[in-house]
């Protein structure tokens, strides 16, 4: 019933999806990693032996939508989704999934929720065990979740059918698959427990441009058919522009901008977003840029800049930015940005 409903909603476009309740809600998420041991911190006299990989992140993913998470290496996008999956602990903040609060991940109540969220790993060749056949890789989730009493052979065949692979591949090992096939097996495994939300970490990294469309089209088709929601983590901006409904841009563990994908690409609000979009090389020799765009590098998490954390690289920096940290606020309907002087109107 629910799947049917969601399919209808997807078919009737974004406006109706908005009416749908949020599937995933993250509020004030913070993930800290200890960088110095107790003794070394004591000796060094370090006040704070932690770094914040994710800081004050709040967002929601609606049923049936695709949410894109982009940022450069070290921006915290992978840590954020790992926290949603319970693979790293939240220091503070709350996560709600499908209406219920995730309180304790070790709790028996978490397992049924966890079943509804699955992860598609970045490199399927590396994330599939080289010693397991496709059959055992894609049926392993049933065993982990004590659902092995099902007809696993039938499940395996159905899953391969869903991702458009011949059942003949069931007895193959990962090294016998092409890059595109391995990617499809990764999708099949993510679908095994019929999740509501799939988190895809760089689903097209390492794929040739003629093959990446295949994987994205398959994901899109499955979304329409099963009413899935996706969170796609990527640094590939040209791809995310086509495949996501909404988008968040991360910098040093925080959201600096969030909103509908089309609006962000048409008119970014945050200078960092503008710089990021401008850095994408255009496959047209008439559109060469004389300037390299954003200069400098992402600062270290150990040494967060004062004021706005982007001010040292910002082309529009003003006095206030050096001292006063901006907060992510709604700048236009449905659009948030963490900037004192958002680029609206320009």
């Amino acid at each position: 019933m629910r799947w049917h409903q969601a399919t209808l909603l997807v078919a009737s476009g974004c406006a109706m999806v908005e009416a749908q309740a949020n599937l995933l809600e993250v509020e004030g998420a913070r993930v800290r990693f200890r960088t110095l041991g107790f003794l070394r911190a004591l000796i060094a006299g370090a006040k704070d032996p932690y770094i914040d990989a994710v800081l004050d992140v709040s967002f929601a993913v609606r049923a049936g939508e695709t949410f894109g998470l982009v940022g450069e290496s070290g921006s915290g996008k992978t840590t954020l989704v790992r926290a949603v999956l319970g693979l790293v602990d939240l220091w503070s903040g709350r996560i709600r999934f499908d209406g219920s609060e995730i309180v304790d991940r070790s709790d028996a109540a978490f397992k049924p929720i966890r079943r509804q969220i699955s992860l598609m790993f970045q490199d399927p060749q590396a994330s599939l065990s080289p010693r397991k056949t496709v059959r055992s890789s894609i049926t392993e989730p049933f065993i982990i979740h004590n659902m092995a009493d099902r007809d696993l052979e039938a499940e395996a065949r159905e899953l391969l059918g869903m991702v458009g692979l011949p059942v003949g591949l069931l007895d193959n090992y990962p090294h016998q698959l092409s890059g595109g096939q391995a990617r499809r097996v990764g999708v099949a495994r993510a679908l095994a427990l019929r999740p509501k939300l799939i988190i895809a970490d760089e689903p097209t990294a390492g794929l040739d441009v003629s093959v990446q469309g295949e994987v994205l089209n398959l994901m899109n088709e499955l979304q329409g058919r099963l009413g899935l929601s996706y969170v796609i983590v990527t640094h590939n901006l040209p791809v995310i522009r086509h495949v996501s409904d909404r988008l968040a841009i991360m910098y040093l563990g925080r959201f600096v901008e969030e909103g509908p994908t089309a609006a962000i690409f048409a008119r970014p609000l945050h200078p960092y977003t503008l710089g990021l979009l401008g850095a994408v090389p255009q496959p047209d020799p008439d559109k060469r840029r004389e300037e390299p765009g954003l200069m400098g590098e992402v600062p270290s998490l150990n040494n967060r800049p004062r004021g706005c954390e982007f001010h040292a690289r910002c082309l529009y920096v003003q006095e206030r930015c050096r001292v006063d940290a901006p907060v992510l606020t709604e700048v236009a309907p449905g659009r948030r940005a963490a900037c004192h002087f958002p680029l609206a109107g320009s």
Binding site: G213, N217, R241, H242, A262
Partner: peptide, 16 residues
């Protein structure tokens, strides 16, 4: 096939 060359956004990307 290059998504950066496709002006209008689409959910059906071309492939070879």
């Amino acid at each position: 096939c290059d998504p950066a060359r496709i002006a209008a956004t689409t959910r059906r990307l071309p492939t070879i």
